[in-house]
């Protein structure tokens, strides 16, 4: 049975607005910075709740087509770890040197999805989208 409303995202959004609108104006000194970081963390988690599953399954599909296998482990988290371990080892050993363009493409797409959650305003991310 799912939890009642408000949803996790809605709850976090409410707290974030409270921090930015109510708490922040009353602070001074180092706690201004800390409060901003706290509010930013809540917005990262909201984006992760909204987009995280989609980003993970896109990454899994990308890895499966790049490495030509499903990945061990029985659930998608374990498959992701298994395939990412192979990807990293194969880059490290030079085994994927000949497929640089395909590898770069996959890694770029995964990173774009990651940054859309972690920091969508980041200039390097906007540039990588061609903006």
């Amino acid at each position: 049975m799912p939890q009642d409303r408000a949803s996790a995202e809605e709850l976090l959004g409410g707290v974030e607005i409270f921090l930015r609108k109510e708490v922040l104006p009353q602070l001074s000194g180092a706690s201004i910075y800390q409060c901003r970081v706290a509010a930013n963390i809540l917005s990262i988690v909201q984006r992760e709740l909204a987009q995280g599953d989609k980003a993970d399954s896109a990454e899994l599909q990308g890895l499966q087509s790049l490495l030509g296998r499903e990945g061990e482990g029985g659930n998608s988290a374990a498959q992701l770890d298994d395939l990412n371990a192979e990807l990293c080892d194969s880059i490290r050993s030079g085994k994927l040197d000949g497929q640089r363009a395909v590898v770069l493409n996959h890694v770029r797409k995964s990173l774009q999805n990651k940054l859309a959650i972690a920091n969508p305003k980041y200039a390097g991310y906007r540039e990588s989208l061609g903006e």
Binding site: V37, L104, V107, R108, K114, A118, G124, S128
Partner: peptide, 20 residues
Amino acid sequence: SFEHMAIGRRACENEIDLLK
């Protein structure tokens, strides 16, 4: 330090720059 914890989520900023 929760601020330090959040910096971990900035590693990927460097990764996208490194690809370029």
